Amino acid sequence: MAAGGDHGSPDSYRSPLASRYASPEMCFVFSDRYKFRTWRQLWLWLAEAEQTLGLPITDEQIQEMKSNLENIDFKMAAEEEKRLRHDVMAHVHTFGHCCPKAAGIIHLGATSCYVGDNTDLIILRNALDLLLPKLARVISRLADFAKERASLPTLGFTHFQPAQLTTVGKRCCLWIQDLCMDLQNLKRVRDDLRFRGVKGTTGTQASFLQLFEGDDHKVEQLDKMVTEKAGFKRAFIITGQTYTRKVDIEVLSVLASLGASVHKICTDIRLLANLKEMEEPFEKQQIGSSAMPYKRNPMRSERCCSLARHLMTLVMDPLQTASVQWFERTLDDSANRRICLAEAFLTADTILNTLQNISEGLVVYPKVIERRIRQELPFMATENIIMAMVKAGGSRQDCHEKIRVLSQQAASVVKQEGGDNDLIERIQVDAYFSPIHSQLDHLLDPSSFTGRASQQVQRFLEEEVYPLLKPYESVMKVKAELCL
């Protein structure tokens, strides 16, 4: 049975990233139509530049190519590739079939990587351009969430054990800070992308030097003109047959890092959902379990974690691919890159769409948070109580021993009897502590235990987050809708 299948058929496997999760716009960027249309555009740009620099290419040939950029006979191309065992030459023939007058000058002087690699770089750039505003929107939604809850005390956790208090907004800023680093890295790697350009079979530009009869300047002009037509500021000066596969490492490393950030955020949300302090959106008709109707599973956060793990592992592909590119190139890269580049971007696209949807509907339960604080705060307040007693004339050592005994009794009630923490009640009825009984409410005010959390939130948002989001103001209103 021949390899390949009808990918629109229910009898043929289709990647869930495309069929179930990723956005239509990201799927289109990695589609065959987008790819092969870009090949034709690159052939047109090459012909236009070659004509401008004096090669015998007519206006009629150029116009014929322009008129057929979208006229792609995919069936013919597939048949040609089956016959020739070469995808680029299959599309040269297919393009030439609908451009008979231009057929002889299509791909003039070029090698397969002229269309293959340059198209990949265009796709990487455009895919990054799709991700950047999506990530900015996630940051914006979380920034709104953090600002609104900047002063809401909550129990902090280290080692997932109760620690000092923080605020809900401050905790959210930990998430935002990681995503801001990801946004900066995505922008950097996007701006650092260079075009492969017009380089020939081993990167020496020998074929173009021959076409222009040894004119170095025209060869350099050709490279520059096509690079500018493709919208790049610069091209690699040095290439082998391909652009260095280190570029793929750079791009997928940034995406993998984004995956790590999203995994951490969504894990926190899942843990908070278990504590009943916070939940992701839950639709009115949504079913959490087929057997347990009360369940409210954090399905979206779980999906993000599941896909983020996949995204983090994909960076190993370009690392290994770059390491086995012998001399000017081997074909070890080809099949692998067809999979890992598309999957990385479709996965990143999915987790950003999902995280935006989550961040637009996060639900906080202040009463649950308050109750958990009441359970733990008495123990945390013991040092403040000791200091207040010393100020009232008591002995630190005597007070410490009193607190120690009462704390152990209260802990026994919590752990052995399943009761509430009654340390404060014990202190309130103990005559030894009568000098500070009137101060206990103040000493137990949760806001006095959150330090500068709310001020940190305000400063972080104003100095770091809002300036970073400013270039994306025009796209901030787009909502994230999930079908599944």
Rank of each mutant, 00 (worst) to 15 (best):
K101T: 07
K229T: 05
Y34V: 02
K415W: 02
L443M: 05
C98G: 09
E50M: 08
Q205E: 03
E401V: 03
N421S: 09
I139R: 01
V465D: 01
M389V: 14
E401S: 09
G231Y: 10
E80C: 07
D248P: 05
I106F: 10
L53V: 10
T382M: 13
K224R: 10
K134R: 09
P467V: 13
K479S: 14
C483T: 13
E462I: 15
P24N: 15
E302S: 02
V247P: 03
L484G: 15
T201V: 11
R149P: 02
A344E: 04
L55D: 02
G361L: 13
S407E: 00
G203C: 00
T313P: 11
N297M: 01
N274G: 02
I139G: 04
K470H: 12
L183F: 00
D144V: 13
L468K: 15
D182T: 02
C304P: 07
I369H: 02
P100Y: 11
H159P: 02
G8T: 15
I369G: 11
L443A: 06
L444M: 14
Y13H: 10
L440S: 00
Q375Y: 05
L44C: 08
D420I: 10
Q221G: 13
K415T: 13
Q210N: 05
A411C: 15
H91E: 04
K391M: 13
R83K: 05
L130G: 08
D349F: 02
T167F: 02
H217F: 15
R137K: 07
A103F: 12
L255I: 04
Q41A: 12
D248F: 07
I265F: 11
A335T: 08
P153Y: 08
K187Q: 08
K264F: 02
S67C: 06
E463L: 14
K284Y: 15
C113E: 14
D59G: 05
L271I: 10
Q161T: 03
V413Y: 08
G109Y: 01
K415Q: 04
N421L: 10
M26A: 06
V363C: 03
L362W: 04
L108M: 11
Q320R: 03
G451A: 08
T354V: 12
M26Y: 02
C27A: 13
R245W: 00
S19Y: 02
F449H: 14
I358G: 06
L461W: 10
I237H: 15
K415D: 05
L314H: 15
P10G: 13
C173R: 04
L482C: 14
L193Y: 15
L69W: 05
F74L: 12
G418Q: 00
F379D: 01
K477A: 15
L135W: 00
L469Y: 14
L271K: 03
Q177M: 11
N126H: 11
S359G: 09
W43R: 02
L406T: 07
L152K: 13
L352I: 10
D333C: 04
Y466L: 14
A102R: 01
T38N: 12
R20T: 04
N68Y: 08
P162H: 04
L142R: 06
P298D: 09
Y365W: 12
L362N: 14
R234S: 12
D87Y: 08
Q61E: 05
S261W: 03
A344D: 02
R196W: 05
D117L: 02
V368Q: 04
N185L: 10
E228K: 13
L406R: 07
N421Y: 05
D420K: 02
F30Q: 07
E148L: 06
L222P: 01
Q416H: 09
